[in-house]
Structure formats: structure tokens, C-alpha cells
Amino acid sequence: MIAEILFPEVCGLYGDAYNGNYLAMACPEAEFHFTPLTETPYFSDHPVDLICIGTMAEDTQRRVLDKLRPLKGRLEALIDAGVPILATGNAAELFAKRIDYVTEEKTAEGLGFFDVTVKTDLFRRFNGKVLGDLDGMTVVGFKSQFSFLYGDNSDSYFLKCVRGVGLNPESKLEGLRKKNLICTQLLGPLLVLNPEFTEYFLGLAGVQARLPYREDAMAAFRQRVKEFQDPKIQFGHNR
């Protein structure tokens, strides 16, 4: 497998860096490219089997968009070919039509793979949890964000929210999905927190791997699922 982790030096906030790191630990035979923002992405002119990108600061998000916009055609070809791509946290927003930064009074054109827009308000931070269902598989995760997405993802969502919010507080459908492109506002080391989903995601790239410390990862996962199913646990609030 050839995998590319995009811009890990700036797109790894909140532990997102460990999605790529965990995959690299799980697949020691694979070829991993950790591409900094100052270099041309490896996928632009090489075949890849998997791509990850994680959470970043808002000004970095605009720089990343500037970097990726010229590669939109190549990304589209990879998506159409079924290459698994995981965008976590606000990296998910890159694939929307447009991002409106209301506090900074700026707008950025997104990659436009989904008919949704993003509203980013630095004076409203939302913290939440999601207990999600992916075709019968449980996925758990956390949100800490300034943004919500708006638009119809009823035929292009990642998870059905059993608890927690989806694209925005009125939505119960979390994230965006197009073939194997998975965009989710769940952030942090999502793959470490969800070993079963990690195996599923690697499976999309045709890889079967024994995850590092799988038993301990599963024990932590089961504990979290149990907590998230507890009706006494709060699921979201603004700060």
C-alpha cells in the first residue's frame, strides 16, 4: 500500500496526527508519504492507495485550499477510482463548496465535492460527542469546532447519529461521503479510538492489518461506547 498523510506538520491538531501515525504503525510494510505544506502532494503525480488529512487552524485551512484547488481534478479521479480518503475535523470542510469565516469576514472557495457550505464563527465553539452508526458498525468520536456545515447530505453522509449532532445542530447525519472519500468533523485520533472502523477503512484500501495494541484499543472503545450510551452523559454544548 502507498499512503499519503497530507501536511502533518500543520494538519494534526488535537491528536489528529495519530491517525496517520497509527496507520503507519499498523502497516509497517506500506510506503507512507508524510508531505509538508511546502511540498507538492505525492498524489498529484503518483498512484496512492490511501490519503489522510486532519484538523488545522483557520488560516492554515485557507493555505491548504490554495494548495489543493489546482489538484481538484486529480483528487476527483482518485475519488472516482475508490481510493479511501479520510478528512477529519475541519479538514472535512475543505471538500465543501465554500467556507464563510464570519468573524474574520473572509470567504474561501472549497473543493466543491459536496453541495454544502461552511460557516465558521470564532466566537462560537461547539464541543460535542457522537455515537454514530455506519451500516451497523458503531463509531464514536468528539467534536470541538467553530464551524457547522449546511446543506443536504441525506444521500452522502458518513454516519447516522444515534446520539450527538451531524452537519449542524439540526442534523442527525454526520459528515460527508462520496465513494470512499470520508469527511467527518469528528476530530482527534479517530482511528485509534475506533479500531473496528480502522480495520474497515484499511479494508477499503485492500489491506488487512493487525492493529497495534488492539486489545487495549478495543477495551477503551468498549468503555467509551458504554459511556456514550448512558443517557446521563451530556452530548454537546457551546462555550
Binding site: 491538531l13 488535537y14 496526527a17 451530556q234
Partner: peptide, 11 residues
């Protein structure tokens, strides 16, 4: 009444 977000452990 909550379940702590452990993501910071990976930072």
C-alpha cells in the same frame, strides 16, 4: 455527566 475527550493525550 460527561465523558472526557481524550484527544489531547495525543498532542
Amino acid at each position: 455527566g460527561s465523558s472526557e475527550n481524550p484527544c489531547w493525550l495525543y498532542d
